[in-house]
Design a binder for these strands. Structure first.
Lengths: 224, 224
DNA sequence: AGCTAAACGGACGGGGGCGTCCACTAGTGT
DNA sequence: ACACTAGTGGACGCCCCCGTCCGTTTAGCT
């Protein structure tokens, strides 16, 4: 388990970034991140940078000084969720029954994504300068892949499940929209339950049409 | 079956709208609609009106004269798809086995929506001035509701299916994005298959969490 | 308390979409 | 052939977002 190492590394980078900042600058930086988290969660990534600056009580220049692009801001703002993702899947791996673990992962990840409108977009985005982010996503997906392997071996997950199906599920979950955040979560919950029913290895189940490649880049993993 | 009546009525309205137009104006109108269909299908509804005008080879003023708002343009541009939807569901109702009919409806409607990026948005939108559009949607949903009732009665569709679940499925399907249109269709196909697995009345199936109201307005129908 | 450099935010120019106006063009009916 | 009017599209003003510059403020250190 190398997660602690990675986390420590992130900490270091963070310190290197923030340690030389003046106290007020550091304070502003935090308020910007807080505002960004809130507005990204509520509205998604397509909000004007200025809106975030406004909510943070900061001028646009300050925002751009700290976060030159929206991507840098988004990756920082979603670091928590990214870590939460990893926690969820490692939790799933720790469960004795891999199928139950898989189900819990689906449920909890769908809910996480439903609460944060912008997170799914960031998660999928794979923009260039976000090495840590992409790495974390890769680790998360690999872990889910392993979990899926076990669930298949236990005969509970359908054999033709592919890791791309998880991406498909996340995209589909992201498509759910409702008037209120609560409504979105409710929809997502039902959607996750349906998804689990769909992925369950069941006697009368018919085979699926060929899987679809949804994320650009190499095939995420041979398996799952 | 009152569909023919409705269609005739639409024809009349159409004639009333177009009969007084000069020939060149009518030609432009058609080219605008064609351009709108193409660009809406490819890019969704969030394209500048000017882009459509450009592709149609007309000035912005001409576009705005024929279609004052994007909604009017969208409803006209998607009239075909709307009718296709009705055809699909009536086809489903005509099949002897309601469950097979239901499956076919899911598959074909998902594919239809996958081919047209903007159609789902228009279908959900329920914007004010589109009476015909909303009516057609209502009929489509009612028909699906009836089909669902029969499929449940046949013991093939899970009993806790609700019409709102169809909306949920369409929204989720709409969330699927891929590099190419072909990729989107492929993803949608697999998604539809998964959906059918999820909705199948199966022995080991667990009950679903409470349904979510996704479209504003009155509950679409007591049943389904 | 005073100095200095870091940090701030208002203001600016650029770009793009929006919806409308108006002088010109071209079908249409005699 | 001609007049007449429906039809056209370039151009305008408006607003919003973007990213940057620069004069002013303020934290940190002596």
């Amino acid at each position: 388990m190398d997660a602690p190492v990675r986390l420590a590394k992130v900490r270091t980078v963070n310190d290197r970034l923030t340690h030389k900042l003046r106290s007020d600058a550091l304070d502003n930086r935090e308020r910007i991140l807080e505002a960004a988290r809130a507005v990204f969660a509520a509205e998604g990534l397509n909000v004007p940078m200025r809106e975030i600056a406004r909510r943070a009580g900061v001028g646009p220049a300050t925002l751009y000084r700290r976060f030159p692009t929206k991507e840098t801001l988004a990756t920082e703002a979603f670091a928590d969720q990214m870590r939460a993702c990893e926690v969820i899947v490692t939790g799933g791996l720790d469960e004795p029954d891999p199928w139950r673990g898989f189900c819990h992962v689906i449920e909890r990840i769908c809910e996480l994504h439903a609460r944060d409108r912008g997170f799914t977009a960031a998660f999928m985005a794979t923009f260039p300068g976000a090495i840590d982010f992409a790495a974390s996503r890769g680790r998360t997906l690999e872990a889910i892949s392993e979990l899926a392997r076990r669930a298949k071996a236990a005969g509970r997950l359908r054999a033709d499940f592919v890791l791309d199906d998880l991406v498909l599920v996340l995209m589909a979950n992201n498509g759910l929209q409702a008037a209120s955040p609560a409504g979105r979560v409710a929809a997502s919950r039902r959607f996750a339950a349906l998804t689990i029913q769909a992925l369950r290895a069941a006697p009368g189940a018919t085979p699926l049409p060929p899987p679809a490649r949804l994320l650009p880049g190499r095939p995420l993993s041979p398996t799952a």
